[in-house]
Write a protein that binds this DNA or RNA. Structure first.
Lengths: 263, 263
DNA sequence: GCCTAGGTCCCGTTG
DNA sequence: CAACGGGGCCTAGGC
């Protein structure tokens, strides 16, 4: 397995392990499974009693400690936040780090270690993403009739005192401010739009309509919009970004079919 | 290492590996290091070319795939979202999952595998947390003078059409609505408070003052508050939650001492 | 189940 | 550097 740059570390000698870990910090990805407790003190205080967890320390000094469930780590620290030191405490392995700017401290104490590995992982690839809010705005700009027949874009990302307006444009009957959301509209979204309208009324002395674009609107949000003379324009996600073709599901079914045939 | 429930899996036979992984899904934590590419199609579309990454699949079917940097995973799936299946595609290992409700698909293809382990991790411990927003509200309720001399709490978490009000109370000169933030105030926070005030003015036909409590206020937020006749009350975090004493570390050491004595 | 708001949110972008 | 807003946000709590 030498060719993969993945190296399992002996856990027989704690002093040796401490040395190996400290010299690997910032150099290789550290993967450590074990039984630990943890204390965090900073923006919040937290204490976690003994349990089996997976600790990952990345080359950028990100720390991520995972428990048995959930996407979110139990404890973590942001990249480049501060030095990370391992040490031996009695018969235990301790990891301590302090985020320099905020003096936030994370201490993890391992009472039992199941596995330790160092990985010189190679990964220079950036993720290609399509379908975020800016893509939705771009799509609407090239298909302005989706917002309203006759709608003409003036500009996007127009800066106001209260934040950047997604789309400014002209309708048949005057200027329109459009706030675009790719997820379901929330009360805060409706209020964000209202602030923009207030800005134009108060600061630029002009009356403008406000349209909130979103795939869906909870009743409360619709009510709030109506009460404040704002408009909701439902543009379902699927309409803009067609759902994945059946090919992918087909692959899934093919797979299960294969499994079935194997038996 | 048998006693730790941590089991390294042979990667010599891909068909065997596929079987082991599929039977481990939902039973044990799967930890897999390897070179992979990944595609996600759902709320967004993303593609990630070949690179070394760490894949973790938890017993609740959470999926977390980490790259070389950052706290946030490159790809993930929420717990209980849908079935996870491994399969052999030509000479590589594929993991495929589909989130049932949303038809979102995540596919990860491993062209090279460095390491695979299954872990029956034991962790029933809940995290003790102190210092979130609700704790700050509780503290203010028992120390109402911090908000304003003479302030008297009527109630907390009062529900309105536009959301729950953190604290309702009476000042010397009338009713006051308090919105509490434990982090620096943002424009959205000020707007949230304004929504509440509008609610009381319009729906309950009463004039109330609005106070935003936060450790710090950017100029723009102060300006918006002033323009809208709202007030800012700075309550530094340190004033409420003094930094941790050494006692916590001491407790930790006490605990280890006890553990040691048991042996 | 949907909806709402908090979060040690993380993260990128902009001034 | 702070500040601001998006996010496949995640997650807990309420209804």
């Amino acid at each position: 397995m030498f060719h993969s740059n993945f190296e399992q570390i002996s856990i027989d000698s704690l002093p040796d392990l401490v040395k190996r870990l400290n010299s690997a910090v910032g150099e290789k990805m550290i993967i450590l499974s074990g039984r630990c407790s943890a204390t965090f003190d900073g923006r919040i205080k937290s204490y976690l009693g003994d349990g089996d967890r997976l600790l990952v320390i990345k080359r950028d000094l990100s720390i991520i400690m995972h428990g048995p469930i959930g996407v979110k780590p139990l404890n973590w620290q942001k990249p480049q936040a501060g030095p990370i030191r391992f040490s031996q405490k009695e018969t235990y392995l301790e990891m301590l780090t302090e985020r320099v700017k905020t003096k936030e401290v994370l201490v993890i104490d391992f009472s039992h270690i199941a596995f330790v590995a160092l990985w010189h992982a190679q990964d220079e690839i950036e993720m290609t993403i399509y379908g975020d809010e800016s893509d939705l705005v771009k799509y609407l700009v090239t298909n302005p009739d989706l917002i309203e027949p006759g709608f003409q874009v003036i500009r996007t990302e127009y800066n106001t005192d209260v934040g950047p307006v997604d789309i400014r444009g002209m309708g048949e009957d005057g200027e329109i401010i459009v706030e675009v959301k790719k997820r379901n509209a929330s009360p805060a979204d409706a209020h964000q739009l209202k602030r923009y309208i207030e800005y134009f009324v108060e600061k630029e002395k002009k009356a403008v309509r406000g349209i909130l674009v979103a795939p869906n609107f909870p009743d409360k949000v619709l009510k709030y919009l109506k009460e404040n003379n704002l408009e909701a324009k439902q543009i379902p996600w699927d309409q803009v970004f067609p759902t994945i073709k059946r090919s992918k599901s087909a692959q899934l079914e093919d797979f299960f079919q294969e499994k079935k045939n194997e038996k």
